[in-house]
């Protein structure tokens, strides 16, 4: 008769799980940071930011809007390097190992966090650059030309977008069989997002990915008397692209709630990068709620 073997623990101790995630994440992070594409994209974004110089001949708010778009290459490469990382999960490496796919996916997500850190640094640089230039021209008629700086809500957007970029890259890398297919898809996603004026309408903007303020809200027909509008409104007159008087709306709250929408969207998108199960369900549920709250709040903030 043999002695009864001691029962094996059903789950791994929490501390051990943390250690495993940290170890896998560090290994992934080293590979991510070694990818020259990441640094090339970051450099391109910074260069684009530096290239934005207000020009007296530009339309009101051109440089203010343009500088927000300069984050696009950074977002593209964040998605790309994350996709490369998650694509490795498609190769069956040590399927018998006690570290299951879910833990590995979490570790890869953790490894991508420093990419969000790069976006934080980028946002900080953006804030500094705007102040260094003495603000960007948000010149509007009548008689309210101002040099404006991004609000904190607007500066939060590159960071929230980086979270979304990680989620998009994770899903495409994990779900597409060939990495080569990821390139055109990410390109389309991020460069179409940069055509921000397509998504600037007050109805569409809460759902947009890259929300570029100011949002132009209908104020009155072209024949309206601008002096009849409330004095604190910033106005834009009828012109080449608009046959009406518009209220030029810049809002810190709108920026923050848009960031909330982006984080919710990131959770929903990122859910498909982790295996089916509780984590995915939780991400989908929580992400949907957060995204919905973000959208509703934006509509509430918009005039």
């Amino acid at each position: 008769m043999s002695a009864a073997a001691p029962a094996l623990p059903v789950s791994r101790p929490r501390g051990l799980t943390r250690g495993v995630v940290r170890a896998v994440a560090l290994a992934e992070l080293r590979r991510i940071l070694r990818n020259p594409v990441l640094w090339a994209g970051a450099a391109l974004s910074v260069w684009m930011m530096w290239s934005v110089v207000p020009d007296p001949d530009e339309w009101a708010g051109a440089s203010y809007e343009e500088i927000a778009v300069s984050v696009t290459p950074l977002l593209l490469v964040i998605s790309l390097v994350t996709a490369v990382s998650f694509h490795r999960e498609r190769v069956e490496v040590a399927p018998d190992a006690p570290v299951r796919e879910g833990t590995r996916a979490i570790a890869r997500l953790v490894a991508a966090l420093p990419l969000v850190g790069i976006a934080v640094a980028y946002a900080g640089l953006l804030a500094w650059r705007q102040r260094d230039r003495g603000g960007l021209w948000l010149g509007v008629e009548p008689g309210r030309t101002t040099e404006a700086l991004f609000t904190a809500g607007e500066l939060a957007q590159p960071v929230a977008l980086a979270v979304l970029a990680v989620a998009v890259g994770a899903v495409l890398g994990r779900r597409l069989p060939h990495l080569v297919s990821v390139v055109p898809l990410l390109f389309v996603v991020w460069f179409l997002v940069s055509v921000y004026w397509l998504f600037g309408h007050e109805v569409v903007t809460p759902f947009s990915v890259l929300q570029v303020q100011p949002v132009r809200v209908h104020a009155g027909p072209a024949t309206a008397d601008p002096l009849g509008f409330p004095a604190h409104w910033l106005l834009e007159g009828p012109g080449e692209f608009s046959g009406q008087w518009s209220r030029v709306f810049v809002s810190n709250a709108l920026g923050w709630w848009h960031a909330v929408w982006l984080l919710g969207l990131s959770a929903v998108v990122g859910a498909f990068a982790v295996p089916k199960g509780r984590t995915r369900r939780w991400m989908l549920a929580a992400g949907s709620v957060v995204a919905a709250v973000g959208v509703v709040a934006q509509y509430a903030v918009l005039p």
Binding site: V183, F187, V188, L198, H201, V204, F241
Partner: peptide, 26 residues
């Protein structure tokens, strides 16, 4: 969306050209 909003779409078509080319090569 561009058609509905009556916005210029030449940049979108440039993106389309590059993206479709990338898909074809892929």
């Amino acid at each position: 969306v561009a058609r509905t909003a009556q916005r210029p779409s030449d940049v979108v078509m440039a993106i389309a050209a590059a993206a479709l080319a990338s898909v074809v090569v892929a």
